[in-house]
Write a protein that binds this DNA or RNA. Structure first.
Length: 984
RNA sequence: GCCGGGGUGGUGGAACUGGUAGACACGCAGGACUUAAAAUCCUGUGAGCCGAAACGCUCGUACGGGUUCGAUUCCCGUCCCCGGUACCA
């Protein structure tokens, strides 16, 4: 009986499903362990071999932890709201729920084929109303809370109202919009309901606001910063522009500091933490007010933020962002035209334009302001290197200390004043040093950096002209999308003011609409819903929530997925607490992982969850990239063109070099010379060459299966002529034609590139195909064997036979290949066999604990090689080997477990074997000896010598002396790793 | 530019706290079994040198230095690749 993976895997997957082997319940007799995968978006392309990499690793962890006696929660679900399903709906009119449903079932069946130990009874889908009911519920809590700086946590908005009633704005220290309103208790109580509500929006965690957003006309929606890459949308690659729109926003900035400090408490990869730190971007500095020079006594004060207040005496100009609210107000009549032109021009520039050229641009407003320290008058400019959205949208220009300011000053002929005696070459470039002492700097002349900064901030604070300030790069997150396929926002508008719907009416379900496009008036698709009004009277919010809403809390829903009264019961949360091990891609560093931490902190403040951080440990698996094959092709028209020009009949090139035709020899030569296309082009200018992607599943080792290629893709290649290694091949009119009949299989001139795996790149490898051929256990082991989990690596099948052979070899420890006769015996294992076993236990345990999944596979291979060499078929050894291997290869081990006489399904509840160090001790001391750094020989030590003695070097010295026949070494170093070093 | 990660045979990779670099696997070459193939098993496989062989020698972890009895590992400098981010004042 040979190892038959197809039969075995099907059988056990069925068994696990029928017996709910991996169903998990609260069990207070065991410690809990929560292993979470980042749930996928169920795309239409299905699962590819890159997806399971992380899932396999987390499954190994889960199974390992079960063997170690933990009660393991290991769920899976789907982040099922998203753009592709909606785009498909726009094209076909099919409701996105249907597409999503189909895609999910494909995903589930593919996952089940790999033999994951998920508790499928806990599956969640973000697009399920029973799920998004709670996403909406959390949104309502956010609307109903504000961040109180004194309590340093979120508090109910009622608390804020009560304080306003008693003491007005002075009674409150809370996170608020930029301009903090000031009013008395009387003012507040005299306000209308509408006025009060509008004021409260400045404090709520979620609120509508007019803001510049990334508007993507191609997708018809706004995108968050992390959904935009290089000025185009991450999905679809459409251009993105800046647009002022009314949007819901999330006050994530309230948590900026806690998001930063929390990073120190979690075991996440350092690079990822660093990325989050940069994204939050804390800068410590000062804000300073510059008064506009004017006859009026109530002149404007321009506030700037700077991290280098010490350079204030070097200010020679002031710059505002073109979008700054006072831009026009500050413009003198003479400059009006120039300024207006500049503002218009700046607004027309897209992100892409801005990145493409970094020319210095700007315009003088005609106004001046006064440096509060030097009392000098400096000109005010507008320039687009100043960003409206950061700090105050205004910058003091210090050309001697800042390169951008230097460029600007040079361009506009503004003075460059040195302010530190250590500054060098400032007529060539800016010098941002903090060394040295200040010059040309009034009250700080002669001081050093730290003292100067403190002095200045003190001076400014005393006169209320500025203060020490902390500035974050992090901005409030835009929380609406002009889309259909997302969670409806549980808000209606009365008198233009947003109110929450009643909690009892959750979930607010998506209404049916006829088309998934914006309305004729430009409103989001939900504007099409007939009679969709709150209490038949009030307009609902028409935008939906962004993709990250549903994924920002999902790990709690797995704890108690069917609950109708809470997002999860207190009992479930008390038991499961939080995620112990979270596995997913690092591309979510500044999106999902930041938003999730934010929501979790909010829920913690409300007392609903026990931990400040939702995931104690996180690991980023690397991406498995696809290998895309490209073929050099000729445009069919090239031949036609040639035919017309030269009036010759088109000759299909043959093996021999005819005029104007490339011979196989030439191609061979060019193929290896590297720059093939360039050479072909120069030789045959009338031929038009191009490069064509080839679907990877028709190619093995540069050899293309032409028949299958053309039959699966009849239209794709119909106008292509491929350069084939020994002749030409072209596809036209639906039928492949060959230059000569012996061309089979055809060798194309191909080259490959490593890219992200995606359907459109034709480089997707489906795990089902590999499972069919080698089995899920082989796939699982091979993906782990491929290299360190955290590394990105291109998919290749080169080594898969090695893991497959390993499993067959393992099988042969139990069964005779041909006869199927069982081999195991009840005989007592020998010391040597026990040594193999215990060494394996030790290594497997250590390596899994330090997440070195690839070396574990090697350890298994070595063990099986050793046991085969020893012809060891002892049940006592094999039984433990099965448990060790079970996390990696669950199917084959289940099968053999039962074959050895154990009850079906019990291996997952077995105990991980404990290694006994006595089997691992070295039998003899024989150490290599190095003399002056070179290995000379092995030196035998007395067996009765203790390790401590050896390591102290005392006895070693005597022994070495004896061995060296009396020569006394200067120094003998004995190191733990069995080397004796002698210096003569 | 800045931040982070990395560079080891023909290939994927191993070497955990500095201790005989290249485990394990693929590939390749040779052999056994077989009519043959598949499967399986055995041997060899970093480069070079000496030699009939054995023993042995030299070089070798991107490059150049340093610390150390000893460096893939630690330090300094350079080059290259990958990921993130960017007029953030």
């Amino acid at each position: 009986m040979e190892y038959n993976h197809r039969e075995i895997e099907k059988k056990w997957q069925q068994f696990w499903e029928n017996n709910q082997t991996y169903k998990t319940d609260i069990d207070h007799n065991k410690p809990k362990y929560y292993v979470l995968d980042m749930f996928p978006y169920p795309s239409g392309a299905g699962l590819h071999v890159g997806h399971p990499l992380g899932y396999i690793a987390s499954d190994i962890i889960s199974r390992y932890k079960r063997l170690k006696g933990f009660n393991v929660l290991h769920p899976m679900g789907f982040d099922s709201f998203g753009l592709p399903a909606e785009q498909y709906a726009i094209q076909t009119g099919q409701h996105p729920a249907i597409t999503t449903e189909q895609n999910i079932s494909t995903f589930i069946s593919q996952m089940k084929n790999i033999g994951f130990s998920y508790d499928w009874s806990r599956e969640v889908r973000t697009s399920d109303p029973n799920y998004y009911k709670w996403t909406q519920w959390i949104f309502m809590q956010l609307f109903n809370h504000y961040y109180d700086k004194d309590a340093d946590k979120a508090l109910p908005i009622n608390h804020l109202v009560a304080q306003f009633e008693k003491g007005g704005s002075a009674a409150v220290n809370a996170v608020c919009d930029e301009e903090t309103p000031e009013f008395t208790a009387e003012d507040w109580n005299a306000m209308s309901e509408k006025e009060q509500q509008i004021l409260l929006l400045k404090y709520r965690f979620t609120f509508p606001e007019e803001s510049y957003v990334n508007w993507c006309p191609g997708l018809g929606t706004v995108l968050s910063n992390d959904e935009v890459k290089d000025g185009v949308s991450e999905r679809g690659g459409f251009p993105v522009e800046r647009k002022l729109m009314k949007q819901w926003a999330m006050r994530i900035t309230a948590y900026a500091d806690r998001l930063l400090t929390g990073l120190d408490t979690i075991d996440w990869p350092e690079p990822l933490k660093e990325q989050q730190r940069n994204w939050i971007g804390k800068s410590v500095g000062a804000s300073v007010k510059f008064k506009v020079a004017s006859e009026n006594s109530d002149a404007l004060n321009i506030e700037v933020f700077t991290t280098r207040v010490d350079t204030i005496y070097g200010v020679s100009f002031m710059v505002l962002a073109p979008e700054h609210e006072w831009a026009l107000e500050l413009t003198t009549p003479e400059q009006k035209e120039a300024v207006e032109t500049y503002i218009k021009w700046a607004a027309s520039r897209s992100e892409v334009d801005r990145m493409a050229e970094k020319k210095v641009t700007g315009v003088f407003t005609g106004s001046y302001c006064i440096n509060p320290l030097s009392e000098e008058k400096v000109p005010i400019f507008l320039a687009d290197y100043v960003l409206a959205g950061y700090g105050t949208g205004a910058v003091m220009g210090v050309p001697s200390g800042d390169q951008r300011d230097w460029n600007f000053a040079t361009n506009f002929g503004l003075p460059i004043v040195p302010i530190l005696d250590s500054q060098k070459d400032i007529d060539q470039q800016a010098d941002n040093t903090k060394e040295g002492t200040y010059i040309n700097s009034g009250i700080i002349n002669g001081m050093t950096y730290k003292k100067a900064t403190d002095t200045l901030i003190g001076w400014l604070e005393e006169r209320k002209l500025g203060k020490g300030k902390v500035q974050y790069r992090l901005r409030n997150a835009v929380f609406s999308r002009q889309r259909y396929w997302g969670e409806p926002v549980p808000v209606y508008f009365k008198d233009d003011v947003p109110y929450l719907i009643d909690e009892s009416e959750l979930p607010l379900e998506l209404p049916k609409i006829d088309k998934y496009l914006p309305t004729e008036t430009g409103e989001p698709p939900l504007g099409r819903a007939e009679g969709w009004k709150y209490k038949n009277e009030y307009e609902y919010e028409l935008s939906t929530m962004p993709g990250w809403a549903g994924s920002s809390w999902y790990w709690y829903r797995y704890m108690d997925p069917q609950n109708n009264d809470a997002f999860a019961s207190k009992e479930a949360i008390d038991y499961w607490q939080r995620v112990d091990f979270y596995l997913g891609g690092s591309e979510h560093a500044t999106g999902h992982l930041l938003y999730s931490r934010f929501w979790n902190k909010f829920l913690k403040d409300l007392g609903l969850v026990p931990h400040e951080e939702f995931a104690a440990k996180l690991l980023n698996q690397g991406m498995i990239q696809g290998v895309t094959e490209f073929a050099y092709c000729l445009k069919r028209e090239s031949f036609i063109y040639k035919e017309q020009i030269e009036g010759k009949e088109l000759v299909i090139p043959t093996l021999h070099g005819n005029e104007g035709i490339i011979s196989a020899d030439e191609i061979e030569e060019l193929f290896f010379s590297g720059d093939m296309i360039e050479e072909l082009k120069s030789k045959y200018p009338s031929f038009e060459f191009y490069v064509q992607r080839l679907p990877i599943n028709h190619i093995t080792n540069n050899t293309v299966n032409v028949e299958s290629l053309i039959s699966k893709n009849p239209f794709r290649f119909k106008s292509s002529i491929f350069v084939v290694k020994n002749g030409w091949w072209y596809a036209g009119g639906g039928q492949p034609k060959f230059s000569n009949s012996i061309l089979e299989p055809a060798k194309f001139l191909t080259y490959s590139e490593v890219e992200k795996m995606s359907k459109s790149k034709l480089n997707v490898v489906n795990p089902d195909d590999i499972i069919e051929k080698y089995g899920a256990d082989t796939l699982r082991m091979y993906e782990m064997f491929l290299g360190p989990l955290t590394d990105a690596k291109p998919w290749n099948m080169n080594g898969i036979s090695g893991t497959f052979n390993f499993l067959r070899k393992f099988w042969r420890l139990f069964f005779e290949d041909q006869s199927g006769k069982q081999k195991w015996t009840d005989a007592e294992p020998t010391a040597e066999e026990l040594k193999v076993l215990h060494r394996t236990i030790k290594r497997v345990e250590e390596d899994i604990e330090r997440l070195s999944f690839n070396t574990v596979v090697s350890t298994f291979m070595i063990a099986v090689n050793d046991l085969s060499d020893l012809k060891c078929h002892k049940k006592a050894i094999l039984q433990d080997m099965l448990i060790l291997l079970a996390p990696y290869a669950p199917h084959i081990t289940e099968e053999l477990w039962v074959a050895l006489g154990n009850e079906a399904g019990t291996i997952s509840a077995a105990s991980f074997p404990v290694f006994n160090p006595k089997y691992l001790e070295e039998s003899a001391f024989e150490y290599p000896i190095q003399i002056n750094g070179k290995v000379r020989a092995n030196i035998p030590f007395p067996v009765d010598m203790s390790k401590e003695d050896i390591e102290q070097g005392v006895l070693a010295n005597e022994t070495v002396q004896k061995w060296l026949e009396g020569k006394a070494p200067k120094k003998v170093v004995v190191v733990p790793k069995r080397i004796v070093n002698v210096v003569l």
